[in-house]
Amino acid sequence: MPNVTGRVSAAFVEANGQTRLSDRFHAYPLKIAKAFPFEGGQLGVYVMDASPGIMSGDHYELDWRFGEQTNVFITNQSYTKVHPSRAEAGAAGETMPVLSRQKQTLRLQRGSYVEYMPEPLMLYKDAAFLSSTEVHLEPGSALLMSDVVCPGRTQRGEVFQYDRFQNKLSVFYSGELIYSGRQRIEPARQRLGGIGSWGAYTHSGTLYLFSDLADAALAERLREFIQLEVRDNTAQAHMPMPAERLYTGVSRTYKHGLVLSILGHKVYEIQRLLDAAWQWLRRELFDKPPLLVRK
Score class of each variant (00 low, 15 high):
residue 5 T to Q: 01
residue 9 S to E: 08
residue 10 A to Q: 06
residue 14 E to T: 10
residue 17 G to T: 06
residue 18 Q to S: 09
residue 23 D to N: 12
residue 25 F to Q: 15
residue 26 H to C: 10
residue 26 H to D: 07
residue 28 Y to K: 07
residue 28 Y to W: 06
residue 34 K to Y: 04
residue 35 A to N: 03
residue 42 Q to C: 10
residue 44 G to I: 06
residue 46 Y to C: 10
residue 50 A to S: 12
residue 52 P to T: 01
residue 57 G to E: 12
residue 61 E to F: 14
residue 62 L to C: 06
residue 62 L to K: 09
residue 62 L to P: 08
residue 63 D to Y: 09
residue 65 R to H: 02
residue 65 R to S: 05
residue 65 R to Y: 15
residue 69 Q to H: 14
residue 70 T to E: 14
residue 70 T to G: 09
residue 73 F to K: 03
residue 74 I to L: 11
residue 77 Q to P: 01
residue 82 V to H: 01
residue 82 V to S: 00
residue 82 V to D: 00
residue 83 H to Q: 01
residue 86 R to I: 05
residue 94 E to V: 11
residue 98 V to S: 05
residue 98 V to I: 03
residue 100 S to N: 09
residue 111 G to V: 10
residue 113 Y to N: 06
residue 113 Y to C: 08
residue 114 V to P: 06
residue 118 P to C: 09
residue 120 P to S: 00
residue 122 M to Q: 11
residue 130 L to P: 14
residue 130 L to C: 09
residue 130 L to I: 12
residue 131 S to C: 09
residue 143 L to C: 06
residue 149 V to Q: 02
residue 149 V to K: 01
residue 154 T to M: 08
residue 158 E to N: 04
residue 159 V to C: 09
residue 163 D to S: 02
residue 166 Q to Y: 14
residue 166 Q to D: 11
residue 169 L to D: 02
residue 171 V to C: 06
residue 172 F to M: 15
residue 173 Y to C: 05
residue 174 S to A: 15
residue 176 E to S: 04
residue 178 I to P: 05
residue 185 I to P: 01
residue 186 E to H: 10
residue 187 P to G: 15
residue 194 G to M: 07
residue 196 G to F: 07
residue 205 G to D: 00
residue 205 G to P: 00
residue 206 T to I: 03
residue 210 F to P: 13
residue 218 L to W: 03
residue 219 A to Q: 11
residue 228 L to C: 12
residue 231 R to P: 12
residue 233 N to F: 14
residue 236 Q to N: 13
residue 239 M to L: 09
residue 240 P to S: 00
residue 240 P to Q: 00
residue 240 P to M: 00
residue 244 E to F: 11
residue 248 T to L: 13
residue 254 Y to R: 02
residue 254 Y to H: 04
residue 255 K to L: 14
residue 256 H to I: 06
residue 261 S to P: 13
residue 264 G to W: 01
residue 265 H to W: 08
residue 268 Y to F: 02
residue 273 L to H: 10
residue 274 L to T: 03
residue 274 L to H: 02
residue 275 D to F: 09
residue 280 W to T: 11
residue 285 L to T: 04
residue 288 K to Q: 07
residue 290 P to T: 05
residue 292 L to E: 12
